[in-house]
Amino acid sequence: MTYQFDFSPLLTYWPELAAGMVQTLRISCIAMVAGLVLGIALTALRMSPSRPLRWLAVSYIELVRNTPFLVQIFFIFFGLPALGLRFDATQAAVLAMSLNCSAYAAEIVRGGVQAVPKGQVEAGRALGLGTADIYRFIVFRPAIRAIYPSLCSQFVLLMLNSSLVAAISAEELTYAAQMIDNRTFRSFEIFAVVGLLYLALSQCLSLVLAAIGRAYFSYPSK
């Protein structure tokens, strides 16, 4: 007996798939921005003169980087309500993704800051600029530029990992796929198609991020 491929039942579900893609992109973009901002804050903590603060930042970063994202999602969605922190599935998903992204972003951003030559900071200090101004105006752009490719890969990975939030029934592309699967029993077809959709999403995201990089973080260099 050979299996008859049949993609036609999927056609009627294209609005669900499209909505799922949009939702995937939406939660991913929010998490990217939040994750980057938090990651920069973590980097600042990590370079602060206070030892306990540095230790706190490093512990957080390593804790997040060395545990599975799925467990983090379960911890936030199922575990935190015990502490009175209740979220709906989408909120928990965005929170988990942002926190997860922040640890990786922090690790990457630190590399960028270290890549900025010491003379740049000294030149800023010699002009009389304060530490905050030095980081904001002098270090930030070259630092981000130095690690922009790694940051983009991390963002794409974040978008792909967002598929895991389907496990707490947060609505996005994988969740839509599971729903369609339950209705049509065309498992193989649906996951093949959704795989292609993710592939398209990740390629588009890469292109868009690269364009943003060219617009905001590039300048002539030798």
Binding site: P117, G119, Q120, E122, A123, R125, A126, G128
Partner: peptide, 15 residues
């Protein structure tokens, strides 16, 4: 520092 200017060997212009 605000009234002491400094010029470095490696220029240290902001790229």
């Amino acid at each position: 520092r605000r009234h002491v200017g400094m010029v470095f060997q490696q220029f240290n212009l902001f790229p």
